[in-house]
């Protein structure tokens, strides 16, 4: 199964992600989830970013919080709403929100 997971909080949800099995796992950072892509808590990037190479962050939610794409971790692809729709329909059979 190709599964895209929306993460909308900054709190770590790595335990849940570790249990999920997917042929292709995508993590889509939206709302306060975008902090995973820009913050270094205690000097370390979020563990979430090591869970899959398929990482996305919504540009509108970054801009709302005062961040520009150049502040985003290089592993994360910044997409706008239109790009996000493409990701959902083209890359993943299922999407979930945790």
């Amino acid at each position: 199964m190709n599964l895209g997971i929306f993460v909308s909080d900054y709190k770590l949800c790595v335990d849940t992600l570790d249990r999920i099995k997917a042929d292709k796992l995508g993590i889509i950072l939206v709302l306060n989830g975008v902090y995973h892509a820009v913050l270094k808590e205690d000097g370390k990037v979020s563990e979430l970013l090591s869970k899959t190479p398929n990482l996305y962050a919504l540009s509108e939610d970054l801009a709302t919080r005062g961040f520009s794409p150049d502040q985003v971790d290089s592993r994360v692809k910044v997409v706008d709403y239109s790009g996000l729709v493409d990701v959902i329909f083209n890359d993943f059979e299922k999407v979930a929100w945790i």
């Binding site: 900054y10 913050l39 509108e60 801009a63 919080r65």
Partner: peptide
């Protein structure tokens, strides 16, 4: 705590979502 998040300059909440920014 996490309340310090969202205090950055240059927030575009009004442009993006039509809401007043925390800034």
């Amino acid at each position: 705590g996490e309340g310090v998040l969202g205090l950055s300059k240059g927030q575009k909440a009004m442009e993006m979502y039509g809401i007043t920014s925390s800034e």
